[in-house]
Design a protein around this nucleic acid. Structure first.
Lengths: 217, 217
DNA sequence: CACAAAAACGAACGTTCGTGCTATTATCTT
DNA sequence: AAGATAATAGCACGAACGTTCGTTTTTGTG
């Protein structure tokens, strides 16, 4: 048994590497076909490997779905949350979070728009571990957004009357609406309008001492 | 061939009646399992009829999906749009539309929350007649909302600066957010918060001469 | 290099999917 | 009530689903 408790994270074993490459494809497939439409045979074809070989990595479809969600979560963190953490707490970080989210929709980080918004609505009237994993991820995301609003408030960038939870929810609703309009209605201006929309909403909540608010690409 | 062009809409034939009862169940099933998860076998079981017997009413799964969408659209119109048309043009009708929408989510007019929001995100990255039917319905709904805003503007209930399309989109985004929070996060206060949210947003756009704005159940 | 462990394969399982037929009921019209 | 028509059931199909199994190939290590 290869003792992997050592500090060094050397080149990962074959199994780990394949698993990861599977999941990268799985995330894209699921973002288009849905987590239920994500099929083992289809996935195996895409990767030119056997169904059984692929299956062995997960042991069940549910495990595959959970692993896919986890991979999507990592990609989401990497593309949206981590860049925002580079900004100082306050309005700038909040803006960066919004920009990151809108950008990831527009830039097709996931093939079929926002992975989690789609997954949310697919599983919202079911129960079980998959739904829970999705809900947990979304709660965490809303939490991040809420904390960013709260920090901006504490930095006196946003008015004291702002309820962080409510405000985060408002912003995210507008963002989801933009994703919806872009994906379903093919509204090419959806993103521009969403940026203006959110920008305006944040400005309306900003204090006079708040630095200028501008949402760009 | 029974000539049905006559004025009298007498008792519909057996076929029509069965078809309708199938579709009523189909709508609920699809709102929970999705339009793709809506399966002919499952639907037949639910109705205690044979797969083939049920199938004959539609000829293909796609036709079944389209018919289900059409039925959902009718239910939607009946529950949300028609009651609002009873109100005079202006702010009251707009409010009634919002109330109706939020009410239909809360009151489980469709078992799994808003049928069309779920369908939208399920089909938004595909192509074909089903996606088109969903998109058309949603465009029509946004159009209705936009016209209501515009009328309220013309009645001097809403400020002249309001862009009807944009404003309708904002309101609907907040409503979708509420549906999302209720369904996925089991947020029992989501609806109350959404009502306050939308109420506040409308108030902020209202003129001094606008009648009082109050969103209730 | 050898050899154990891990990974991938190919074939098959039992189900369910959507979709055809044909036969049998039920419904409507004259 | 009879005859025509429409509605439903029964059965079978090929394909795809998730899953299991035994075998073969690849990988990593002493």
């Amino acid at each position: 048994m290869p003792v992997n408790t050592a500090k060094a994270a050397s080149r990962p074993s074959k199994g780990v590497r394949t698993r990861e490459s599977i999941l990268r494809v799985a995330v894209d497939l699921a973002s288009v076909e849905g987590l239920e439409g994500l099929t083992i045979g289809r996935l195996a074809d895409e990767l030119k490997m056997s169904k059984s070989g692929l299956f062995a990595h997960f042991g069940s479809k549910e495990e595959l779905q959970l692993a896919t969600i986890e991979m999507a979560r990592q990609i989401f963190v990497e593309h949206i949350i981590r860049p925002a953490l580079a900004e100082p707490e306050g309005i700038d970080r909040l803006i960066k979070l919004c920009q990151g989210w809108l950008g990831h929709v527009e830039g097709k980080v996931f093939k079929g728009g926002c992975f989690f918004t789609a997954a949310s609505l697919e599983f919202d009237s079911r129960s079980g571990p998959v739904r829970d994993a999705i809900a947990d991820t979304m709660k965490a995301w809303l939490g991040t957004l809420t904390r960013a609003v709260d920090a901006a408030k504490k930095a006196r960038h946003l008015k004291a009357a702002i309820d962080p939870e409510q405000f985060a929810f408002e912003i995210y609703s507008l963002a989801m609406g933009a994703n919806w309009a872009l994906q379903l209605l093919d509204d090419r201006n959806a993103m521009k309008k969403a940026r203006e929309n959110i920008q305006q909403r944040i400005r309306s909540a900003a204090t006079p001492s708040c630095p200028p608010i501008k949402l760009t690409k």
